[in-house]
């Protein structure tokens, strides 16, 4: 199992726990992502997957354990600094787009880290950096395949397209590590296949490490090079997709004791 772990992880979490009052959402989890990996994160509902992602991306504070990004402690870093300084981007389980803005504006929001607030005072939206950003947004929209919908209001799009806008917005931050929280939720099998391709292309062409939470096993098995299974805030299995999917603990967590040895 240890042989699978990356040599020089971008992100390293050791014994991370997160509790809300008496609820232990994460008990103690070790987690690492290397620069050229796609890590799948699976587990039953309520097992702590999204909490782990929220802790990694600085939206929740870990109650215990240590977090390192690029070898520096990151437990108390804000999500803004993780995004701006360390290239960490994410999407959300329940699509969170800015509902009244166009697709292009939504993606442009991902490019804010390069701007200082006073830039606008003398360039008024016409500065060379802004123009370059708009060009880059075009390229990203092209890449995820929604360039023709750039001027539509984001929430008017179909569900699968909204997911892609979210991914585009995350890509706009120029990340090195992308956290995807159930990107295939609500997609039909065809859309899910397109998504698998997109995830692979993001990884291969843009050289971005990816952590993907997913219930759709097709997506996980076809993308992840390494899978980690959480249950009740603990890691119960870890390894390559094949091994994990036949692990008795995993079967038990998903299907109940009865199926464990079936």
């Amino acid at each position: 199992m240890t042989a699978l772990l990356p040599e020089a992880p971008i992100f390293k979490a050791t014994g991370v726990g997160c509790r809300f009052g008496g609820v232990i959402a994460l008990d103690s989890v070790d987690f690492q992502v290397g620069p050229d990996e796609i890590v799948g994160l699976i587990g039953p509902n309520g097992s702590g997957k999204t909490t782990l992602l929220n802790v990694l991306s600085g939206i929740y504070r870990a109650s215990s354990g240590s977090l390192e990004i690029d070898g520096k402690p990151s437990r108390f870093k804000s999500s803004r600094r993780l995004s701006r300084d360390h290239g960490l981007a994410r999407t959300f389980q329940n699509i969170r787009l800015c509902p009244s803005l166009t697709v292009r504006d939504n993606v442009l929001i991902g490019m804010h880290s390069g701007f200082r607030w006073y830039d606008a005072l003398w360039t008024g939206g016409r500065g060379s950096r802004e123009r370059r950003s708009v060009e880059r947004v075009e390229e990203i929209l092209e890449f995820v395949g929604i360039a023709d919908k750039r001027d539509e209001i984001a929430t008017d799009l179909a569900y699968g397209d909204q997911r892609r806008v979210e991914i585009a917005r995350a890509l706009a931050t120029n990340p090195r590590l992308l956290l995807l929280d159930e990107p295939a939720a609500g997609m039909n099998p065809r859309e899910a296949r397109v998504l698998v391709d997109l995830i692979k292309r993001i990884h291969d062409e843009r050289e971005i490490a990816i952590v993907v939470i997913e219930h759709n096993m097709n997506v996980v098995m076809n993308t992840a090079s390494r899978v980690m299974v959480l249950d009740a805030g603990l890691c119960i299995a870890h390894g390559d997709p094949k091994t994990v999917s036949s692990d008795p603990h995993v079967l038990e967590a998903y299907l109940g004791k009865r199926f464990r040895d079936a």
């Binding site: 804000s78 803004r80 995004s83 981007a89 929001i109 606008a120 995350a170 706009a172």
Partner: peptide
């Protein structure tokens, strides 16, 4: 119409998103 205005709108729409995308 500048980035500053867009960051205002982003904050109005969803602060968590704004923060997660590097807006102060």
């Amino acid at each position: 119409r500048s980035f500053l205005g867009r960051s205002f709108l982003a904050i109005r729409e969803d602060e968590v998103i704004a923060r997660a995308h590097g807006i102060n």
